[in-house]
Design a protein around this nucleic acid. Structure first.
Lengths: 335, 335
DNA sequence: TAGAAAATTGGAATCGTTCCCAAAAGGTAT
DNA sequence: ATACCTTTTGGGAACGATTCCAATTTTCTA
């Protein structure tokens, strides 16, 4: 077994209390005692047992993170941001990965409660009644990331303005003279990406008195392949080719571009394409993808800051909408 | 404060011991008592305090992960694999992110010891003497991922066969008739990517009696941009254009392709390019990148399995070399 | 130099569990 | 009804730290 404070005390010829005081940089310790204790700690390689400490103090310095998927740049960037802020503030991260399985989210929420985490960062995709119940009785500060839950919950949330972003980028297409704009999206149980971005698309069209046709709309999943499939479906069923395509993510846009190039269409000369998300590869593919940039790392940092304030009880912001920018590259032509 | 076992006991009219037995599915509890306790637990939403439990049992179910960077597909995929296996086996993950800062690795190792994690998965880039010291006295099972440390440490390690993989893909170029093959790599403090892949390249050339010139060699960092820069440098300084380029990662290859296309070269007609890593975008860019596939998720899973065995004391494998495959796509032409 | 004030120290209770042990209850055979 | 065995139950000592309080030592002041 690992060495304990008691043994350090014995070796240093002082009491447990004194050792504890040295460990915690407390005052009221003579230099002599402090030195002796520090020496013994160094010699023995003693590391205090944080379980005992946390039990006694009745709090931990762990932040729980509930993630739908780790190996996706959106999420891993956000985690990067979270880890920056949290470690800087003396917290560490307990990661749970639901693999897009909504049921697991509830399980993990319970696990985090059992672990007595100090706070929770919850990446939401959809919010069910079960979530409501679990979150409402959790009794631990939670910040929700990615979905606007300000009307359902009393928890702060940090979101991208997906509606507005989608609208802007579709407007950009319209400004470039495009009127026939197809849509490659994802299922709508994902509110932010599936619903809001689609609504933004419709709103932009409507405000400009443009029409869309069901032929122009494709919904798949988040894979690059799905973008390829969507483009194929659209191309093969429309009477009149769209002059532009709005893909709700850059990865979908990449898949779509691949399909077009494989089938003899030029991008952007024949068909323009835009995405959302500014994936790190988007500047480098051919053509570079015009897109919306969200800073996910910053989103993670922001959410962390809000959670910290919440934990410390100083302040509790309700809803933070992150910025975005349009990044113009070469995938859009003017007509 | 949260409700405790004592209060549950009182409410259910039994002793703490009995409640504990119910929680832990222990036998020797009458059905009546069990039901009553379960009911009270449900009503109150009681969740046992794992700190107390772990303290008493003197062990946790947490696995520490030391990562150089989270938002990189290699690492995040590996973490995905790790989380799969670990959660399935009842462990959870404490994540630490060193942001490529070697000093932090030591700090985090200590943190993990303080947390009394059950085991550690350590993603190594370089191994210094400080690492040696810290790891040798940690007294917790550690599995090292990504660098072959079997000769330095007594810890198991899981690695890719970078030397062999690099050699194979360069050989593939040679088989296609290429003789003038340039190299875009990274600095050599990263042993696996910086050194081994380079050695594989040289070995392949040498075995085929081919020469390389210092003009053909570029070393940068891991960014896509660095691939672009490298390609630029090489193109602008060589007397004779290479017919192929070996980039040590797919991202570097992507940057290189971008540069070539921007400057009027055709890939692969004018210059062929290969990478390593089979990034998820590699099939979708134009041209699709011929590369080496490593399954990072599987690497994470494998390392986790080894760690679990190590923890359970059943078996302790020393070194596991993961498989790879060449994936042929469209970035290589025959001459 | 005595006495008070301040600094240092050690003892013991405590955090919320687990788990050993002994006691109580229940069951069975004589 | 008694003795014996089995099952269930509760009490209490840990686990390794923190922290309050009181005791002790040191320092300061008149």
């Amino acid at each position: 077994m690992a060495i304990t404070i008691k043994e350090i005390a014995k070796l240093a010829g002082v009491s447990k209390s004194t050792v504890s005081r040295v460990i915690n940089d407390s005052e009221h310790v003579s230099d002599k005692a402090r030195e002796k204790v520090q020496q013994v700690i160094k010699e023995t390689g003693y590391v205090p047992n944080s379980l005992a400490k946390n039990l006694k103090r009745n709090q931990t310095d762990t932040i729980g993170v509930v993630l739908p998927k780790i190996n996706t740049s959106t999420f891993s960037s956000a985690v990067e941001g979270i880890s920056n802020v949290m470690y800087q503030n003396g917290y560490n991260l307990l990661l749970t990965n639901t693999k897009l399985n909504v049921k697991d989210e509830i399980t993990y929420l319970n696990l985090l409660k059992e672990k007595r985490v100090r706070g929770i960062l919850f990446f939401a995709t959809e919010i069910t009644d079960d979530h409501l119940e679990a979150l409402n009785k959790i009794d631990i500060p939670v910040v929700i990331i990615g979905q606007d839950t300000s009307e359902i919950f009393d928890f702060p949330c940090v979101i991208q303005d997906d509606f507005d972003a989608a609208k802007s980028i579709v407007n950009h297409l319209i400004q470039q003279g495009h009127q026939d704009i197809a849509y490659i999206g994802v299922e709508e149980n994902d509110v932010a990406v599936g619903q809001l971005r689609k609504l933004g698309y419709f709103e932009a069209l409507q405000e400009n008195d443009l029409k869309t046709f069901s032929d122009y709309i494709y919904k798949g999943d988040f894979s690059i392949e799905s973008g390829w499939q969507g483009m194929k479906k659209i191309i093969n069923r429309v009477e009149r080719l769209p002059s532009a395509v709005f893909a709700v993510t850059d990865r979908l846009a990449l898949g779509a571009i691949k399909y077009l190039k494989q089938n003899g269409y030029q991008v952007p000369e024949d068909i323009s394409i835009v995405g959302i998300g500014n994936s790190d590869i988007s500047p480098w593919v051919d053509p570079g993808i015009t897109t919306i940039n969200y800073d996910h790392e910053q989103t993670g940092e922001e959410a962390s800051q809000i959670l910290l304030k919440y934990i410390n009880g100083t302040k509790r912001e309700e809803k933070k909408v992150m910025d975005y920018q349009i990044i113009k590259r070469d995938s859009v032509a003017q007509i």
